[in-house]
Design a protein around this nucleic acid. Structure first.
Lengths: 119, 119
DNA sequence: GGCCCCGCTTACTTCAACGTAACTATGCTC
DNA sequence: GAGCATAGTTACGTTGAAGTAAGCGGGGCC
């Protein structure tokens, strides 16, 4: 469970940094172009999106296809490995949908009262 | 899905930073003391563990109980909200167990051959 | 009185992620 | 030859998490 080369560091707990999970979600319904990914992702900086995509590509989650056209056209698509992430991501999203309010409430409560104390 | 105050930033994609998920797992089978958490977590620095626990506490995932004994005894335990994370974490762990090798293989492959090219 | 235990805290450093802004490359159209 | 479009790259700076090393507090024990 807690090996030296522990998978947890590389696992979907942190899919390719902050945006990785969202990018995978954006690609769920099919290939997307660079600029198509930028729109839903709240205009994430191109630099960051490039880094994220490279990272996902490195890990074998997406493929990058450059059509050498002009103006440039490049498509990103999920691999089988990338698709295998979807259930885990869905589980996380479901948690968020069900419990995000509780989390915010807990944070609100935390401002003021701290440590539970006994004995 | 991509709101301004997007849940994804706060959701289990990143549970209270790097160690949060593992701490929650360590607490799955019952309350644990500070020093008991340090052992399985590969001797994570006390500073980092404290920060992680405070963060989990803030988000309402764990409770901290100080027994005011000597030598000090403090126990951390999952709340209901904390337990609600377990299925999502399990999904991620299952993914890791099933696909971690593929991920490593993809990274190996990446050293050398890059971008898929068409047309 | 001095040392041990445990659960921290403090000060400092390192590193990667994130973000902004501006610029590049290419070929097409006007 | 100016301007447009897409898919980036480059240079730079900020932020925050992670890690290292050391010290604190206070009762118990010898």
């Amino acid at each position: 469970m807690f090996d030296p080369a522990c998978p947890s560091t590389a696992s979907p707990f942190r899919i390719a940094d902050k945006w990785g999970g969202l990018v995978v979600l954006c690609l769920e319904s099919g290939p997307r172009r660079f600029s198509e990914l930028r729109v839903p992702l709240r205009r994430v900086a191109p630099k960051v999106l490039t880094e994220t995509l490279r990272s996902l590509e490195r890990d074998g989650f997406v493929t990058r296809t450059d059509y050498h056209e002009n103006p440039p056209r490049v498509e990103y698509e999920l691999t089988a490995l990338g698709r295998s992430l979807l259930p885990a991501i869905a589980a996380c999203r479901e948690w968020g949908a069900a419990n995000f309010d509780s989390l915010l409430a807990a944070r609100d409560r935390y401002d003021g009262g701290t440590a539970t104390t006994a004995a």
